[in-house]
Design a protein around this nucleic acid. Structure first.
Lengths: 222, 222, 222, 222
DNA sequence: TATGAATGAGGCTTCATTCAT
DNA sequence: TATGAATGAAGCCTCATTCAT
């Protein structure tokens, strides 16, 4: 079990990516986006009306369409950048090096990353909910999802797992199975606490540590 | 690792529940339900139109409303029974006894249950997809979900995990964490293969075994 | 100058074409079409609103879209059949034979045809006005116009003019110039009295005769 | 048939009218007018948007409304002066005198005028198209049209025709019929070649001569 | 003078639901 | 029971026009 580690090192190399790149929005446009996030998250994209968004944003309905050609473009403009920002740290080239250089144990590293992403997710919970809801129905989001996950994040994680397998620290099971196991256990933690049981009290640090412990135990070479 | 086991024993005690309780539907009504499942799964509930459902079912639009007062009632009538059927085996009182009586190892038992539920899910994939999509937006479904999971399935699983903890076979971590870990790893397997990567080829038996192995390793008392 | 001739012979061979082929319309659909003709003719297609059409037709706005998928489809459904009906008599194969068989002089024949088409046009004046207004902006109507005029009516008229040229009765100028001259002089008569000066009193029979006389004089071999 | 005549004489007495009276327009205003002509001609007035005009003109939308109070005023400002310029030569008081003084034959005169107006029309084709399209729907244009045609051009042409009738050179038919015949045959030539078949190759000089020949033949006292 | 963000009325179209047949 | 024409509310979007800068 890792000692309490400062999260900063991770944030150092993510910071320029994590920081919001939503530049130069007018104040009304910002209000539109915020209202859209609220309404989409509450009712789902298809059941949300632009008139309700406009009302909640305190602008005229026509103003929405001055900034976004269609309702769908408004959705995409919200969800699409979130997807890349959410996964950005896992795409970095230095990922593996940082992992070995800056952290005493794999668990430490995973914990740092998990906390960082958890904080990010908590901050953008509604957008992530919208993203999960709409990916099945929006081909454009599917495309972005596949590009990000399929060809970048997946590859990076695969490298890391095989690195540890080569070192004899990870059980000899197929890499895809290991990857799926680890990621769904972590994502499951996230979804359970943020989406399935949003009200339940929890000690985030403890929960993350337990989950990582279980994952590590599961994957450890016997 | 368990030997190849016949799945039948599990089915024996689920059979009366798993068996369809779709009673006395007219042929047209059946066609409506089938069409609705197709369309809801493809476009999502809110983006589906009753006219498209009617057309695909080969009935007049009015006919739908003769059987279901509203579009939402049609949705509920499809999703609601599926939820209980999907979780039914985990609610049975004899669950724990069967587990200890009929199966040599815990892994054997989990494998049998997993295969059984996987087959069930494959058969009703579209409805499950609709269910997952609509639970966040349909209070009635949320209520049923909470009743089933929160007060019945959760309780049953908690009992079982604590049973094994008491026997010293499971690591001493909080039961909710263990439960979440095990279930999300299994559900993650399901969602990955059925929903995220529906086309990918896979050896179901192997995948289930690997996942259970990882879960068991993770939870095993060290 | 021809004696007063009965118009019937011409009508005999056009009758089955001239007769309306608008079959099996519901009463509401008929009211929609009538209202649309009124409004389109008065304001022009682009400046007409479906809500005004619905109101004038005494139906709900949605009812229009039950019968016509779009506003443009409503326009096309009105104008397109009119174009072929208007030109139908000029396309008939027996045109030239009838001309030589049933009428003592070319003038008689032209007079009969002119009266027949004038009556038809008067009856459908508004639709013809819409047609003329919208052809420049509706590619589908342009296509139909080219097919009808370019490849059928033009060809028929060319044959007839060359027939009389061969008989030495028509001046030796290029056939297209003769055709254009004769047709625009006739169409000019129509447009002047029906569209440019709709209120002016006139003796239709006299006007037609004068115009034909002038056309014949103009084209006569000197 | 007249010899090739210089067109200048006609232009001499039209020149001060034909010359553009577009005074003191800013460069932006000019660009707005040009863009409006393009867009109105292509899509029709009602289907054109001020935003498209502004974009094509390279100005802000608001700039249009600084120069023209409404969209309709922009239309009128374009079409209205064109109408008078197009018909100006036919309104001149000296018309008849010029006719008898400067040209050996009536045909010569008509040819000269036709060529002159044809050139003018070719130069302002789009505006004329807009004019023809919008007269039916714009009361203000109708008013101007009636004033120009009804009380001035019509009167002038009537005088000329009756002048030649008195001289025994024109057939004894009602003057309005003669006038309509001649004008629609000429206008028909114009519309056919410029609007109905804009792409077709043609020898303008020949076509005008043929048409005038046919008109003269038609109207000649027998 | 010029801009362009903002407006809100109005346009076309969809759709769940009703009802006479 | 089944139909499908009809409804009208509501949805998305366009657009001429205004106004603060």
């Amino acid at each position: 079990m890792p000692q309490q580690e400062p999260v900063e090192p991770v944030d150092q190399w993510i910071q320029e990516i994590v920081k919001m790149s939503d530049e130069k929005m007018t104040e009304k446009q910002l209000r539109i986006v915020q209202a859209a996030v609220e309404v989409f998250a509450e009712k789902g994209y298809a059941s949300s009306s632009t008139s309700e968004i406009a009302q909640k944003a305190g602008v005229a309905e026509g103003t929405i369409f001055r900034h976004y050609k269609t309702k769908k473009e408004l959705l995409i403009s919200i969800v699409s950048p979130m997807m890349s920002k959410l996964l950005a740290p896992f795409v970095l080239n230095e990922f593996k090096e940082v992992l070995e250089t800056d952290y005493p144990t794999l668990e430490d590293f995973l914990y740092a990353v998990a906390v960082n992403r958890m904080n990010f997710a908590r901050k953008h919970l509604k957008i992530i909910k919208i993203m999960l809801q709409e990916i099945p129905f929006q081909p454009m989001l599917q495309k972005e999802f596949k590009q990000h996950i399929g060809t970048r994040v997946f590859k990076r994680f695969t490298e890391i797992i095989e690195h540890f397998k080569a070192k004899g620290e990870v059980v000899d099971l197929p890499t895809p199975a290991l990857l799926r196991f680890a990621s769904t256990a972590m994502i499951g933690l996230f979804i359970t606490h943020f989406l399935v049981m949003p009200g339940a009290p929890w000690d985030e640090e403890q929960e993350i540590r337990h989950t990582i412990t279980l994952i590590m135990n599961g994957m450890a070479a016997k």
